[in-house]
Amino acid sequence: MSAVLRTRLKIADLTAWTALDAARKLLPAGHALRRLQREEIFVFEPAEGRGADFEGPLGHAIESSNFFVNPNKEQYRFLGAADRGAALVPPEGAWGILARARGETRDDGLRERLLREHPMNGLGSIRRGRLWWLWVEGPEGRSADLEACYRAVGPVTGSRRGLLVNPHSETDFKIDGPVSWDAVEAFLRAPAAPRREAA
């Protein structure tokens, strides 16, 4: 069981604006992308055989320094293993894409810097991912064809197909409802399969 930090800009996110603009041109006919939001997600795993004793100092470090969050421009939610609930739940009306690097998702450099500036015991690994949340309406008020939307703006497969993820450097999964944190953790930990073998 890991602790989770989710951050996003509270100032205008120009990357999200650009993604919104680019994604609108790629969606299936009749679909309208109303909103797009970007989040960074950090998962803090306890060291082997350790519990959640690092969570207090980590929470303090997040709240009292700008190591992870600059409060002038970012907002965050830090949830300890006991508080995070059973599942990652999309915001009301949204579906999402969780993406991570294809290679190692454990950020040892970040952990090393964190522990240098904020010594704490029991922290194992830090893993990272990125969440894209999208609010899409289907044609004539009907619900959107999420699978088609995902193919249109998710992993890039062609010059006019896909946008938010390059599957040769990243891997991802579609979130169209609550996803258990166990599944999120497993996704962030598992080695990515070669593309054709995975298909």
Binding site: A101, R102, G158, G162
Partner: peptide, 20 residues
């Protein structure tokens, strides 16, 4: 690379990335 012109083995397909 993002436009699929390199390596361009399959027309129109994006077949690689320039990763970090």
């Amino acid at each position: 690379v993002e436009a699929g012109l390199v390596p361009g083995l399959e027309r129109g397909a994006v077949e690689m990335a320039l990763a970090p």
